[in-house]
């Protein structure tokens, strides 16, 4: 083999290497690092807000939520309204880039007595992370502020974070009556099984302050 034909072969080999790196990168980049398992962080406790007293800030007037802030997670998102799907499960926010959170409209408005329920996606398919991607990282006493349509705001403090199997969803804990204004943030978590998340991450919070 002459020197330059050898060089040609070397050049082609380099081409192979470059192409191979591209292909290999694609295979690894799809699921490494941001897998759902990272979301399924263990909860910080099993008790909801049971330990807190009923006294606290005065409930706010009824007004639908329009915005949600979670400073600890860098979340600041609009809030849409959600109802029931035809199969009687709760509707979920749209799958979009910059997906919003959604307030379940058959629950009390934030700041009213009872559990106000807000849902958000952990991931939104091809769009990547959802608005509640890091929800499981919240810890007790972290603040959550909900802005209401009438200009007031309700500030909640996290009382517990739970990761539960969807098969054992704690319906009563989430939707059951409470004497004071509380908040539930719900998303998915845990490992993916057949393309679906196995668990739900539920944040329980109680009203800490209000802004008129």
């Amino acid at each position: 083999m002459t020197p330059f034909s050898r060089r040609a072969v070397v050049a082609v080999a380099v081409a192979f290497l470059v192409a191979g790196c591209g292909g290999g990168g694609s295979g690894g980049g799809g699921s490494v690092g941001d897998g759902p398992a990272a979301t399924g962080a263990p909860g910080t406790g099993a008790s909801a807000a049971a330990g807190s007293s009923v006294s606290g800030p005065r409930p706010l007037a009824r007004s639908v939520p329009v915005g949600l802030e979670i400073p600890a997670l860098g979340v600041d998102t609009p809030v849409v309204r959600l109802g029931l799907a035809p199969d009687r499960t709760v509707e979920v926010p749209p799958i979009t880039a910059d997906d919003p959170a959604g307030w379940y409209r058959y629950s009390p408005t934030p700041g009213r007595p009872g559990p106000s329920v807000i849902l958000g996606h952990v991931t939104v398919g091809a769009y990547g992370d959802g608005v509640f991607r890091q929800l499981a990282r919240l810890r007790r006493d972290d603040g959550i502020t909900v802005r209401l349509e009438n200009g007031t705001a309700a500030e909640f403090a996290v009382t517990s974070v739970r990761t539960v199997a969807k098969a054992d969803f704690p319906t009563e804990d989430v939707y059951g009556d409470t004497a004071r204004p509380e908040l539930r943030l719900i998303t998915c978590g845990g490992p993916l099984e057949d393309g679906e998340y196995r668990d739900n991450v539920i944040v329980f919070a109680a009203l800490r302050a209000t802004t008129p």
Binding site: G29, G120, Y175
Partner: peptide, 29 residues
Amino acid sequence: DGVSVVPRGAPDTGDAPAAGQSGGDGLLI
């Protein structure tokens, strides 16, 4: 006050991430 209609089951709030779909294609190209 309280939840007037309790939904059935657990909410499905996670559309599984597309494993390397768009980024993977980009790298292949």
